[in-house]
Design a protein around this nucleic acid. Structure first.
Lengths: 189, 189, 189, 189
DNA sequence: CATGAATGAGGGTTCATTCAT
DNA sequence: CATGAATGAACCCTCATTCAT
């Protein structure tokens, strides 16, 4: 029923553009999520990546697929970062601060689409990261026994969200304050 | 061949409806924000208030104007609620939990439009509420001296936001956990 | 989240345009259905009527609502036309031929959305028209007793559809031939 | 930060796939047309055939080209089927009912693109099939002399279309009724 | 001053068609 | 000659905002 007029189409770099496009889309999504949150226009990602709408949909059939791709990378980073035996919850919060904006979108995704089979594994991996750290901290007596993994996860989420809504210029202050707050909350009694 | 039915125009209560409409709009906005957040369709407010779009725009030229009006009422409630000499920060968090959804929209507003001259005063009033409580708690030794008004404000915001994104069925659990977290963070060392 | 820029809006003839728009939409829909069938782009109707998309959706929230409005007029015409005591099935087919293109869309609607509560009554009214005629014709012995209302309805649908897909220039021939076919089928044995 | 996975390209069976692809496309098209009608997404055919889009376009530059190929096979079937000396128009209608959905697409094609030089021959072949049958039936006195090839062709088209728009569950009923109708129309007076 | 329709832009998704490999 | 990704236009629908009455 539609009658597209091929008049004067633009360039078509061919399949070679495929992998590059995929990467560009993920990078663009990371930026867009950071600036506007997970609810930014989906098409904004294509626009920013300099890629056609259709290609966006080919690579990522829906919002969640793209978000999962973005956060998988983040999570891998987090897992690797917390692997060394001397990492602390403090370090985790540190890293979350560094990933600030994207972290928020990550939390949004995990809490909003927890039932989505593609999303659930991310939540589990995140919980694992937290649990491992917490076990260590408990053993060392750095963290009070009243603290559970749930608490740390919630704190992480709150921290990320708080940073996401803060002006870039004030992020450092806010991050410092929030982390002090959580450190106090977690310290042994 | 066509038979357009001119339909009869509806009632127009005239200027007398002015003040009533304003109140109805604020009440409707409170409900709408509570149910759908600050980003609900603006027109949904008019619809719910049973008022024309034009009237909505006359009374509140933009989103922020309406939000300010809503939260002004909330804030008055908070001020009154915290007036008695025996109110604690715990009570404040309590109240915030009770206002959960609307509180979030409030926080959103304050952080998003802090530069808006209509919004700033709300922030100040809120800070006053917190400061007064905090001074008392410090004097009584209920709260550690390391805690500043900024900390309490931040905690309040985080709490509200966290609740806003939580399933209604799990709100109680989340509220309990978050408040325990903040209580621990605030307690004297 | 959207940020429409009011820059240089076009004319807004105000509510006065309402009834006119409604009529224009129905008229436009009649034409569009006649030319492209019931599956024509919905927006084509707004375009042809010279009316904004939004107005189309205000007046007719979905395809079926518009279609029902169009065919209600057609049906009223049919009911009135077949009222006189000397009308025959032949006359009915005649009329259907006259309404040719739109009739097809009508049949499409009735058969596709029979479950839609707005559509079902149209089907019933149509069946009533047919039944009344048939009863008369049976009584007069003009039509064989083997013919049921179902048969006439089906013939009507086939006739309309056949005409709809015929070049305008050949409609007369096709109509003549089809009607002869059905006359033969219906005649007493 | 991103880690594009280049993915491995899939198999490319090379030129040898040519003839096989053509056949697969026709078979796929037959299925797709039967299920979704002539207006199904063109690309659905390639998908179902397990063939690249490009190959589809190479073999069949446009919709009509593919449709012609499909119906050519159908017509061959019809010609063969009606060859025996004792075949009747009733048998023809029978066969059309059996091919129902695809037949409709066929009719659509013939009537929509009658001017297309690739399509016209199909129409002629079909007419030949009908004429041959009709001549026999006339000779045997099974069919009225008032019936011409045009009439049978039209009836065939109407029957196919009617079936195409009928719920699968009701096809049998509709087919029975329609054929009775045409039998009555065709019977000698 | 209230009303509620009109307007049109924006974002979502699908699909026809092209073209590098 | 096959493959399958890229492209972009079209259509769908929702809303923010304006403005005649």
């Amino acid at each position: 029923m539609s009658t597209p007029r091929p008049e004067q189409a633009k360039a078509n770099r061919g399949p070679a553009a495929g992998p590059g496009n995929r990467a560009a889309l993920i990078a663009a999504a990371r930026e867009v999520y950071a600036e506007e949150g997970l609810s930014a226009p989906f098409s904004a990602v294509a626009r920013r990546a300099g890629v056609g709408q259709g290609s966006l949909y080919r690579h990522f059939p829906d919002r969640a697929a793209l978000a999962v791709a973005v956060f998988e990378e983040n999570l891998a980073d987090l897992e690797e970062f917390t692997a060394p035996a001397d990492r602390t919850i403090d370090d985790l919060l540190d890293r979350v601060v560094a990933q600030a904006m994207v972290s928020t979108a990550f939390i949004d995704l995990i809490t909003a689409d927890l039932h989505d089979p593609r999303v659930a594994p991310l939540g589990i991996r995140f919980r694992d990261v937290v649990s491992r750290l917490l076990a260590r901290e408990h053993a060392l007596g750095h963290v009070g026994t009243h603290v559970e993994a749930e608490d740390v996860m919630m704190a992480t989420g709150m921290l990320a969200t708080e940073l996401a809504r803060t002006d870039p210029g004030q992020r450092d202050d806010v991050a410092r304050r929030a982390r002090a707050l959580f450190r106090a909350a977690f310290s042994p009694r």
